[in-house]
Design a binder for these strands. Sequence first.
RNA 1: CGGGGCGUAGCGCAGUCUGGUAGCGCACACGGUUCGGGACCGUGGAGUCGGAGGUUCAAAUCCUCUCGCCCCGACCA
Length: 482
Amino acid sequence: MAEQAPDKITPRAEDYSRWYLDVIRQAGLAEPAEVVKGCMVIKPHGYAIWEKIQRALDDRFKETGHQNAYFPLLIPESFIKREAEHVEGFSPELAVVTIAGGQKLEEPYVIRPTSETIIGHFFGRWIQSWRDLPMLINQWANVMRWELRTRMFLRTGEFLWQEGHTAHATHAEAVEEVKRMLDIYAEFAEGHMAMPVVRGVKTDSEKFAGALQSFCIEAMMQDNKALQAGTSHDLGQNFGKAFDVKFQNKAGLTEYVWQTSWGVSTRLIGALIMTHSDDNGLVLPPKLAPVSVAIVPIFGKGGDEAAVREAGAAIEKELKAQGLSVVFDVRDHKPGFKYFEWEQKGVPLRLEIGPKDLEKNQVAAKDRLGTAKEFWPRANLGAHVKEHLDRFQTQLFDRAKERRAANTVKIDSWSDFKDVFAGDNSKFVLAHWDGSRETEAKIKEETKVTIRCIPFDSPDEPGKCVHSGKPSPRRVLFSKSY
RNA sequence: CGGGGCGUAGCGCAGUCUGGUAGCGCACACGGUUCGGGACCGUGGAGUCGGAGGUUCAAAUCCUCUCGCCCCGACCA
């Protein structure tokens, strides 16, 4: 293990995993719970990011007609077993409650790993007629999946998420919903997180346990590995049949409903870290930064401290009037200390106000990507800052998109394929696949590479499978993944 | 769950081999001087050495068990 100075961040090039953990620690996002296996404590700065994510997504869910509700944490074990693929997919990760109130339970409860089953049960009670459809429900909740190997934010025993659950009269309408919500996720990822994503459909072996098909957004992390950032499932009538969710159509005939589910989790915070942050710590897009501007006062000797305080407070007020979240950092520390701290926390923009600035009627400014300080006139500062942050948001997105483009390649031979993924290397590889589960499994076994998705924008292009040489109608997206 | 590494003050670590009254740096508190990229001096507080059991006159150190973290592997809707 490398020697590490206290409170410093391991450079990415030296040890990417360690860097990731260092960033989380130094930014105060979270820490391992230690006393609870595989779980973490989300600290205020990390939770504040989650709240921003929640707010933005929740607004979009409401705009598209969904309502929030809440279902029990505990699910009768028999519910999970009712859908064959579902139980097979989830049973290895279940935590089960067998004793409660000092009594052994007649039927154990599982702690929800996801809520399709219990919501299916209630949908069955709530839905009778086509007039009850579509049923558009979302739940913000915690779930538990007993994972063998955990990583903060990316995979923990317990995590926070939202799960949308909807029921529709027709398959076409359900599919439309699945796509609509995937688009919302994609727009959120790109517009708010400044993280470009590939939209696509999962292969059969990668889809949700119990779904007809799963759509996803896949993002590229800085080590060129893929991260599934959101999924949206077409559940068909599988859960409708398992939980007897039926309705009478307009013709008076009884049919099973067509259901969907879709979710994103606190994993998005991990995605945010691994998309933008650098060796100096967290980098956050302004739209999700709990603090978007930090104002650092300089109280030099010979300077008028009261005047600096007054000017800083005035700037704080002006920026807040622009709807920005601002901190005027008057703590008793040296300015340099504050610079480092706000950088590690990912604050997009830092302003400095000192005696020299008062004289010149200006502020010093440095954004989280910038290398040199700039000096901005004090007049119209609010509007200028806002404009700068908008540009910063765009810059982050462009930068991430360029990085992805530079690391996305088309590959047509198996030896090239293996070269790209040699060692711990990864890229986004667009290559032909013969469509068989067997070939997919062999590729994974030989290289640890999986098919992340069949991108929606993958054009028809007949070719030969990169592994088997059999015919393929189009390229699919391969990558190592988290 | 398999292989490896590691748990000693808030953080990072030394001390463990060879048992003998628990240390260092940073952080923290107070006072003063400071303040445009991690301030300095002085004083001070803080640890049941991850936990349980055992060996011993004596255990951070030796033995057994156990919990957790990190890395690799397996697994991952």
